[in-house]
Amino acid sequence: MEKTIRFHLNEKPLEVSCPVHWTLLELIRDRLGLTGTKGGCREGECGTCTVIVDGRNVNSCMMLAVDVAGRSVTTVEGLERNGELHPLQKAFIAKGAIQCGFCTPGMLMSAKALLDANPRPSRSEIRKALSGNLCRCTGYEKIFEAIESVGAGEIFDVDDGVWQAIEQVQKPRD
């Protein structure tokens, strides 16, 4: 059975129909073709499918697609603005927080949900906010550093592939 729903996806209104038993992840990846959101386990444990629904980070594999009717959904594809990377994306690249990159979209979405609610989180607040996102490559250290740098207002610029912090507003907390 299919159902038609209306919601906002990456700030654009959308009307789409999908089977009622589909998860949000299936809708995003398989019907809408936005493959930036990953499915590492499809059982709510790894966080690679994290998207933001009405300001909260959720595992899209654990939410029914029809439940986003009337809501606002942000995926990793919605982070860039006019071709300009989001500060979190720049910081992840600059700090080397991306290795295989498979957890990155989910990490970015959990980090964005955190910073939107708490613009200058401490290291322990970052750890807690990302505790549902597994990473097998980085040991998390550089991901923490990247989020802290955005919290501290660091602005990066790139020269021949090397990113430098050109401006730091505040020192990182902790």
């Binding site: 073709g33 936005l34 493959t35 930036g36 959101t37 990953k38 499915g39 995926t75 990793v76 594809e77 982070l79 860039e80 990377l85 994306q89 992840f92 690249i93 600059a94 080397g96 991306i98 990159g101 498979f102 990155t104 979209p105 970015l108 790139v158 592939g161 090397v162 990113w163």
Partner: peptide
């Protein structure tokens, strides 16, 4: 010895990189 951006880092940060599972 520098901290070069990985060649594919932007594609990974934006979700544009196609992993095998993304091929349709």
């Amino acid at each position: 010895g520098k901290r070069h951006e990985k060649l594919e880092a932007r594609q990974k940060a934006t979700g544009r990189l196609k992993y095998t599972g993304d091929i349709r």
